[in-house]
């Protein structure tokens, strides 16, 4: 069984908005999160969906699920204070439903342009490797700087990729990684920005699924502008 976890716990603080997080912004007549959920709804490989959502938006989300006829969402889990806690809440929510050998496909709600090809490749790769990350090659040269003032090094571009989501895992693998992580005292937990970092830290090998430049994340107002200019309406 393949269960998608859609993370919608962000606050949208980087967009400067005060009334709603970015994943609930209207994008051509629908909230961003609904566009994202529709991609998983129509994917033949996805059996169920868990949405991790900030508490004050859960009622709105439930209404939208009805309005837009999203039927695969079986759980709405509460968002945590960090991405890791949100993912952990999702893993807890689905625990009784899935076995260790089922697969979890974790995706950002703020990436509404995720394609069927990317979801399918995640499913194929996670079945092959037990864990996989969605990436795109780094076409620009990446600069490393430790202080934001001076260039420290220029890593080999051909070895560099940019991480996207979904990130997919066999349930037992991601569960163990999270359990191990949260078993550490808080001040000893390494800083992780995504689920793959945490799983990699637990010593698991992670395969690569090829993403797409269009699978961009709405993080800033500029991203929203870009997405709006990419999508052509009324066709």
């Amino acid at each position: 069984m393949n269960i998608a976890v859609v993370l919608a716990g962000g606050s949208g603080s980087r967009m400067g908005m005060v009334d709603r997080p970015k994943q609930f912004i209207d994008l051509y007549g629908k909230p961003v999160i609904i566009h994202t959920l529709e991609a998983f709804e129509i994917n033949e490989g996805i059996d169920a969906v868990c949405v991790v959502c900030v508490k004050e938006w859960q009622d709105d989300l439930s209404l939208w699920l009805k309005e837009y006829d999203i039927r695969k969402v079986r759980w709405i889990a509460e968002a945590g204070a960090s991405r890791q806690l949100s993912s952990l809440n999702a893993l807890d929510a689905i625990r009784d439903f899935c076995s260790d050998d089922d697969y979890v496909i974790i995706h950002d709600a703020a990436r509404p342009l995720v394609s069927q090809k990317i979801i399918n490749e995640n499913i194929a790769k996670v079945r092959e490797y037990g864990a996989c990350d969605t990436v795109i090659p780094a076409h620009d040269t990446v600069i490393r700087s430790l202080d934001g003032e001076m260039l420290e090094s220029i890593p080999q571009r051909k070895e560099l990729y940019l991480g996207q989501t979904p990130q997919s895992f066999r349930y037992s693998i991601v569960r163990k990684a999270y359990d191990d992580y949260f078993a550490l005292p808080e001040d000893e937990r390494p800083v992780m920005t995504d689920d793959c970092g945490l799983v990699l830290n637990s010593g698991v090998e992670i395969g690569i699924a090829m993403g797409d430049k269009l699978n961009m994340k709405i993080t800033t107002m500029e991203d929203l502008l870009l997405i709006k200019s990419i999508v052509r309406t009324g066709i």
């Binding site: 007549g29 566009h35 529709e38 129509i42 394609s115 269009l214 990419i230 052509r232 066709i235």
Partner: peptide
């Protein structure tokens, strides 16, 4: 939902379009 399409915009020139596909009838993947 969003989906890609390829469109010809001039001879020998295809471009990627991303469109919002509705589902009022039968949703089909070519």
């Amino acid at each position: 939902m969003f989906a890609k399409s390829y469109k010809i915009t001039e001879p020998k020139r295809f471009e990627i379009f991303v469109e919002d596909v509705r589902n009022d009838a039968v949703l089909v993947r070519p």
